[in-house]
Amino acid sequence: MRDSRGMRAFFQVGGIVFALALTTVVLVASKAPPFAAYLNIALGAFGSWEVFSNVLVSWVPLLLATSGLLLTFTVGLWNIGIEGQITFGAIFATWAMRSLQGGGTDPAFVIMLSILAGALGGILWAMLAGALKTFGGVNEIFGGLGLNFVATAVNLWLIFGPWKRPGIASMSGTVPFDKALWLPTLTAQSRLSPSSIAIAVAGIVLVYVLISGTHFGLRLKAVGRNPRAAYLLGIPTWQYMMTSFAICGAFAGLAGAIQVTAVYHRLIPSISSGYGYLGMMVAMLVNYRAALAAPVALFFAALNVGSIQLPIVLKLDSSLAGVLQGTLVLFVLLAQGAREFFARKGGKR
């Protein structure tokens, strides 16, 4: 059996069909009408400009996280610490905002500096994970997980401690920023910020060009495929790993800053919103190809937003979207494995 383009498509479509079939079984088992459930998710995501703009609001941080992860995956690293990097981006953005607000500085300048501070926060936290990996020999998965917990703890400490609301520490977060410091939206009623869309699109284009059109990207791939061989060929492997960590951290930090300046307008305990983990699923689903990241991230964001309709209309738990996302990744990965198995078998023959 040859590993042709048609065969790849066949296995990928097969994986998606299996995932849908399993989710449908879950729906039928819970006595829910599958067709109505899927239709409600679709209408909840694409039924009007208002709901679609909510999808785009969710798409921006997810795409930014995915963009960063594509680089670390390319160099062979599982940057599971991305959740903490998003959180630190949000913390740095909030810190900049709190330091500059009310001081007479131009609001646009304050917002810009906060977003840049967010990127810096993400870079620093990612570099820490990179340093643990490079100089401490700590696997990036364990180091990243540990740093995620530390980031959450720091975030909570700030919300309940130094940055708490006057007299009241609240899980609803810090005091909201002045309206002038919210990232401008399309209209007064809209949540969608054109500048955040521009940042996300620029980010994925940059990653696409970096990976597929530059010498840097080629070297990243070389390190990812075989670090030892890359090193022997003269590629400074640890520097490339640290650089990919730093760029991923910048993207994660931007995602955190956008959560603060465009979505919640304050720092909240779950500010990362799980976009880091979701971004990993998107990156795996697209098999680490940047060209597919934007549409698949949009699909995941649509599932998240559209599934809100399930409890409203059908009294179903909206975690069904998570079931579908998880099974999609699982079955597409299984399908990839099956394709490679058959391709190898075909090659031997």
Binding site: S58, Y264, P269, S270, N304, V305
Partner: peptide, 8 residues
């Protein structure tokens, strides 16, 4: 925000 991430 913990149960419905990304929503307000």
């Amino acid at each position: 925000p913990a149960d419905r991430p990304g929503t307000t």
